[in-house]
């Protein structure tokens, strides 16, 4: 009984170490290929269009409503203390430090991360990755590098758009609906938002970009090694789901860790 328990525990630990090691090597190889020539600028631009440009609508939409709800909730909370004038800075700081990078990352996971994982998983399943290798084309450079480059490039920009639209959303509710003056909204923001807020948001969006593309690409690439069986359409769907869950959780965990480190 006890032996079986420890046997299973050991097995689990070994599996965990194996998976983590594999993903670590994968990340290292991808980053190395990204920064060493030949650079695949054209392919990165093409992927940026898919991951970045085509995500902008959904980012604008979620950013607008996040800003609006922040404006609404913030206004009623601040009014209790007679501090409605701080609405602008409250909206801006919460967006810049937290909500902007986190929600943008979560939206990109849903829109592009899942698609990347499924695409690479299908390439693995249908031997397209093997085909690349036998043609002496490095799958890391051919498939992974454009996705890594594009995500790392896109996410900070998308976060920037999210923040801008969010601040405008807060303005829309605070100033146009609830009667705050435009001057008060921006004056508070001007006084209270500091470079540290922007820096934290920027660091987060870079780290989240790495997490999103790393988990999605690595899960897809190692689909055939999944313990739950990575075969067929069901294998792809299961792996994609697990990639989405894992990257979302990692984004939230790292959000806390970065906040704790930078505060």
């Amino acid at each position: 009984m006890l032996a079986r328990f420890f046997g299973k525990l050991g097995h689990e630990i070994l599996y965990f170490l194996e998976t983590t090691g594999r993903m670590g090597v994968f990340l290292f190889t991808c980053l190395l290929c990204l920064v060493t020539p030949p650079y695949r600028i054209r392919a990165i631009i093409r992927q940026t269009y898919f991951i970045g440009a085509r995500s902008s609508f959904v980012i604008i939409f979620t950013g607008l409503f996040t800003g609006m709800v922040l404006g609404l909730q913030g206004y009623y909370t601040l009014r209790k203390f007679g501090a409605e004038g701080l609405l602008g800075s409250a909206v801006a700081v919460s967006l810049l430090r937290e909500l902007g990078p986190v929600l943008t990352a979560l939206m990109v996971i849903g829109r592009a991360g899942s698609a990347m994982c499924a695409e690479i998983g299908i390439m693995r399943n249908s031997e397209q990755i093997d085909a690349l290798e036998t043609m002496a084309i490095d799958p890391y450079r051919f498939v992974m590098v454009p996705k890594f480059g594009a995500t790392i490039l896109s996410l900070p920009f998308l976060t920037f758009i999210f923040n801008m639209v969010g601040i405008m959303g807060g303005y829309l509710v605070g100033v146009s609906l609830l009667g705050l003056t435009s001057g008060a909204y921006f004056q508070g923001m001007y006084q209270n938002v500091v470079w540290d807020d922007i820096e934290m948001g920027l660091v987060k969006s870079f780290v989240f970009a790495l997490i999103v593309v790393w988990v999605a690409a690595s899960k897809g690439y190692h689909l055939h090694l999944e313990r739950s069986g990575g075969f067929g359409a069901e294998g792809v769907s299961r792996t994609t789901t697990s990639a989405v869950v894992m990257s979302s959780v990692l984004v939230l965990v790292w959000d806390y860790l970065i906040s704790a480190m930078m505060l």
């Binding site: 390439m123 031997e127 397209q128 093997d130």
Partner: peptide, 12 residues
Amino acid sequence: FGVLFQNVALFD
């Protein structure tokens, strides 16, 4: 090397 895979493995 050239390879013809079982399910051809063309890039769809």
